[in-house]
Amino acid sequence: MRFVASADWQLGMTAHYLDDDARPRFQRARLDAVRRLGELATERDAEFVVVCGDVFESNQLDRAIVAQTFEVLRGFSVPVVLLPGNHDALDAASIYDSPAFATSPRQVHVLRDSHVFEVVPGAQLVGAPWFSKSPQTDLVAQACAPLGPTPPGIVRVLVGHGAVSTLNPDREAPDTIDVAGLRAALDAGRADVVVLGDRHSTIEVDERVWYCGTPEVTARREVDPGNALVIDVDPDTRALSVEKVHIGRWAFLTVEETLASRADVDELAARLDRIASKDTTAVWLALSGTLDTAAKAHLDDLVDRAGDLFAKLDYWRREMHLAVLPDENDFADLELSGFAREALDELVSTATSPGPQAGHAQDALGLLYRFAGGEA
């Protein structure tokens, strides 16, 4: 029995951190990733697709997003099973109960409870849907508890969402998924494999317990996003194989560099130039070192110009440890006088003194250098 597992589509997410012109492309890319999941299922002769929670960004979405989702899902040649997660929980305002959802394609199914669901002959799904954003119990363990051994010739998949005990920093949280309990249930034959959502990176928790990851990257902290899982389970021997398939097109990168000269800035420019598919790549710069004002102005000019090509290119302010120390030659050729000269002297003094205003003064010096005609 072969199926495709995915999670955390979060369709409708705003992606506020992207530039205005990139945001619509990113939203479209998430739907395109869903389309590729359907194509993957067809190419691999999968029997069904299961989505392990957070299909939608929230329960309050424009109906157009739901309609666009259904238009894509109508192209799937196999059943698609959706699990409500923390973003789209089965609460009183659930998107799954909205009028927009009434037009869902016939091959779309929602796991609204933990009853055994025969998605296709020979394959059972047991879901652990979320009914609120803050469940007070391990929903996966609760779903698994009443199960008996999987019948001969049947493949049973446990579908959940949330943080597992081996990865969750808050192991005392009541909704933490107990990995030891999952292993015991799997060893007892109550399920063949567990697929999970919530972590946006693809993670093998156990050889039989997997986070699918999001099919399209959503944040720079994600280690291995943009994947789907193609899973094979032999209904007779219970042998399991899991293949990770990359389907994402976007990339979120953190570029770390230590800079000490204009030549280093040029090296950074060359590194950025080598990045392919700039219009689908967001870059955060984490820079350290020391530059003079002229080199920092050159860097700012680089970021401004390259930013026109990338979906996003900006400094990661929290990880910026770049000092700007004015050099006596930085402003020698600018021939400043009067008020401008007084402002320059005050900025230089502030920029080279300890205190919270030094960084602001350094930024202002860079602007002054560029506006006054310094070569960038």
Rank of each mutant, 00 (worst) to 15 (best):
A219F: 11
R271T: 12
G160E: 03
P152R: 02
G38N: 11
D54H: 03
A145M: 00
P326V: 10
T254E: 14
T42M: 05
Y211P: 02
L37V: 14
G373Q: 10
A184F: 01
A191P: 01
R2S: 12
D19S: 03
A22W: 06
R271G: 09
L259H: 05
A260K: 11
E172M: 01
P174K: 00
L365H: 06
A270N: 12
G355R: 05
A260F: 10
P24E: 11
L299W: 15
P354Q: 11
S201D: 10
W284Q: 10
D20M: 06
L334W: 08
R23K: 13
L272M: 03
Q362M: 11
F26M: 15
V223G: 07
E342H: 08
D224Q: 05
L253E: 14
A29F: 07
H200A: 08
A46C: 14
T176F: 05
L196F: 07
D224H: 05
N59L: 04
A286I: 10
T290K: 12
D32K: 11
S261I: 13
D345T: 15
L344Q: 09
V164K: 01
S134Y: 15
D301A: 15
P215I: 00
I247P: 07
D300A: 09
T293Y: 07
D20Q: 10
V230P: 00
L11D: 06
E243F: 01
H161Q: 07
Q142P: 04
C52V: 06
D300Q: 08
A29W: 07
N168R: 03
W316Q: 13
Y17I: 00
E207D: 13
L11G: 07
L268D: 05
V72D: 01
V209G: 04
D187F: 01
R23H: 04
F48G: 03
P99M: 13
V217W: 01
V66N: 03
A92P: 06
A191F: 02
G122V: 00
R370D: 11
L302G: 06
R25I: 00
Y369D: 02
L11A: 09
A46V: 12
S241P: 04
V303C: 02
D279E: 14
V66Y: 01
K133Y: 09
L73K: 02
T218A: 09
L158I: 08
Q10L: 10
L334H: 09
V119R: 10
